[in-house]
């Protein structure tokens, strides 16, 4: 039971990640592929955040240990835990993964936009965003001598 409890988050995040991978690979539709990639990307972030969580901790915004909020947190975590793992009397979750993932999310939407822009341009050039159809069109056009063969 305890192993299920202590590793549930990791397993759930991996299921999400593989869901993204499946969506990414199971389709030739480029916009759908970008959705799969976005799910894969954000679930990697969720994995980092899971690793940075500290039981009985709070968000990494320093607060006074003697304030009502600090006292309530200390009472929940227990005096022994606070003494061992607290910073000036308060237990915080690890801020480092938060920093990494915060910027990764914003960069993620920027790269998503670039990927979708490429899909839009492909649609304008080929009339489709299915990779199969784009490749078939390329073969036809190459055979007809209208475009240079791909290297």
């Amino acid at each position: 039971m305890s192993a299920v409890l202590t590793h549930f988050n990791y397993v759930a995040v991996i299921v999400l990640m593989m869901g993204g991978l499946y969506i990414l690979l199971s389709t030739g539709n480029l916009v759908r592929r970008m959705i799969g990639l976005a799910i894969f990307q954000t679930s990697t972030g969720l994995f980092y955040i899971s690793l940075g969580k500290v039981s009985g901790g709070t968000a990494a915004i320093t607060l006074d240990a003697v304030s009502a909020e600090g006292q309530a947190l200390a009472a929940r975590a227990g005096a022994e835990q606070v003494a061992r793992y607290g910073v000036e009397g308060v237990i915080y979750s690890n801020p480092l993964p938060h920093v990494l993932i915060l910027t990764a999310i914003v960069v993620g939407v920027a790269t998503l936009a670039v990927g979708l822009a490429i899909a839009v341009r492909l649609r304008e050039a080929y009339g489709t965003i299915e990779t199969d159809e784009i490749q078939a069109l390329d073969r036809v056009l190459t055979a007809a001598g209208q475009v240079e063969p791909a290297p």
Partner: peptide, 14 residues
């Protein structure tokens, strides 16, 4: 998960 800043970003960006 105590990641308040990340949650904020995910809500507005995602």
């Amino acid at each position: 998960m105590d990641a308040a800043d990340v949650a904020f970003t995910e809500a507005v960006v995602g």
